[in-house]
Amino acid sequence: MNRLRGIRPSMPVIALILIVVVAIGAGWLAPYDPLRVDPLSALQPPSAKYLLGTDELGRDVLSRLLVAARTTVVAVGIVVMIGALFGMLVGVIAGYFGGIIDELLMRLVDGFLWIPTLLASLTLLGILGPGYVNLLLAMAVATWAPYARLSRGEVIIARRQGYVEALRVMGASPWRIIFSHLVPAARGPVVVYASTDAGALTIVLATLSFLGLGVQPPTPEWGQMMTGARPYMEELPLLGILPMLAITALVIAFNLVGESIANSHLRVSTVPSAFRVRLLGWRRPKELETEKVPV
């Protein structure tokens, strides 16, 4: 866990860990079955029996919120993982081999970079048709390009340093250099970007589900819960406000964690010290330095 040394246990980090733990344990924490329909107790305000009330079908809102957290964290986790790994692979290959391969791959990356995530995932869902696997696939395809751009840049910096040349002279195969040395070298910035990207993807997932193209019922998801709550917003505002707060809290946590990793002195143990210096200089907490305006 050496590479995480730079992350201080700040508020957002604790909050994010808490949300993830709750999401994973949602099955045990939920007081009721989130799918159990009970028309007789529909649209109830919070009570001792149902801590956050019930929805239009009489399902327990607290249980649904908790299980929806799992839906979101798992989906976003998978998408970021696929997007980041694929993007890194493309970026590292482009950066390492250079020349025509670099040119072709980066034009492809440019093509995907200009498409906003929501547009790309909607388009792909429109082409592939709805479904959970298609949803994850569409979001991953929509999100990989920046990772490629980022890791290509890091690899080009790393390649200028002696150790890649040294490895090559020692007879290491390109794939060995790529997987054991260059991919780890690109890891730092990718982790930082992944955190803010996770926030953006949480919003995209909720938006797609709200529109009915994302996570399908009966699986609880926050955006989809808001679709269900919409006709009853006036009588029971809590029904819509709670999922909104949940989404916003998770996105804020992702954004703040991204900021705090970027600002902390990220250490990447497996890269040479010269590169580590570069990484330390990489996106210093500028606000802290520049705020000392002589007035």
């Binding site: 919003i203 909720a206 938006t207 955006g223 919409r230 819509g240 999922p243 909104m244 989404i247 996105v251």
Partner: peptide
């Protein structure tokens, strides 16, 4: 600013309507 970039547009729309 952080709140503004973190709240999804559709959620904000529903709250504003409400």
């Amino acid at each position: 600013g952080l709140f503004a970039v973190s709240i999804p547009g559709f959620a904000l729309a529903l709250i504003l309507i409400l």
